[in-house]
Simulated assay, not measured.
Amino acid sequence: MRQTLHRILCSVAAALFLGVPATQATVQMQSDDVVIDSPALHALYEKYPAYHEVFDTYALKQGFKRPYERIGTVLHELIHIDSMVHQGFFIEGVYYEPYLDAGAWPTLTNKDIDALLPNEEKDHRIFWQYVRNTPSNTLANALDELNAYSHVTAWMCRHDETGAVKQLANIKGFLWLVQTFLDMTHEHTPAESRALALNPVSSSALHLIVTRAKQVLAQCALVSYLNVTESE
């Protein structure tokens, strides 16, 4: 009974938080029992077979050994590619403008964030691993990363909680970076901050991506709680 309740609650949580149908077929993807049960991610994976091997190799070089981590890395990179192809953020198979169009976003870069941020606030792993290594990237790029991590993490939390831990840390890190961009823009380039707020396309994409990221954190916490109670 508890196992049945556990499965139902996990499925409903995915539907409520992520817009995934509560009942759907699970598709066998790999010989080592990796399944992609998100219709949007499954379609995305099938859409770009030519990139599977190269991104899987990249995942291995990054130290990802767990099967779900490897496929998750492939999916993450495919989200970037598909978003670029369609010039819209891939969100559950729908594309939301304006993507990385420079004219649609504030002009502050990671290099500016590095210069403006007090040293005591630079203790985030995302700062040292991402901000410092991509000085020309902007708020739009941070949203692009946050969006990709949110999709993959939501899927991994349902199948590989251990592997999802790093993904969850990255979601929290990029949420911090997005908020830092917004705060710095408001403080140092207020005209651009106002323009962003008044741009319905950009502000809607920003709100949707950030909201989904926070929902994924909540959904993963719920799945973790249900797994703990199930084992008691």
Rank of each mutant, 00 (worst) to 15 (best):
A148P: 03
W155K: 01
T185C: 12
V165N: 10
T153S: 14
L146H: 01
H186A: 15
E187F: 11
V152T: 10
L175E: 14
F174V: 01
T189K: 13
K166P: 05
D144H: 12
M184R: 14
T189R: 14
A169N: 12
S150V: 00
L175R: 03
M156T: 05
N147Y: 10
E145L: 04
A164S: 14
D183G: 07
A148T: 04
V178I: 08
H188Y: 14
P190Y: 06
F174A: 08
A169G: 11
A148C: 08
D183F: 13
N147A: 11
K172R: 15
V178W: 01
W155P: 01
Q167H: 11
T180A: 09
A154M: 05
Q167S: 11
T189N: 12
D160H: 09
L143C: 06
I171C: 02
I171E: 01
N147I: 07
A164V: 09
T189F: 09
N147S: 15
C157D: 14
L182M: 08
N147K: 04
V178E: 07
E161V: 13
M156D: 02
K172V: 06
A191S: 13
T180D: 10
M184I: 08
H159G: 06
D160V: 03
L182Y: 04
L177H: 08
K172A: 15
N170S: 13
S150P: 04
L175H: 02
N170G: 05
H159Y: 15
A148R: 04
I171S: 00
F181M: 03
G163R: 01
D144S: 11
D183Y: 12
H188I: 09
I171M: 07
L143M: 08
D160Y: 06
H188R: 14
L177A: 07
A191P: 03
D183W: 14
Q179G: 09
A148N: 03
V178Y: 05
H186C: 09
L168P: 04
C157F: 06
H159A: 09
H151S: 06
L146V: 07
D183R: 13
L146A: 02
F181T: 02
L175V: 06
N170T: 09
M184A: 12
L143K: 04
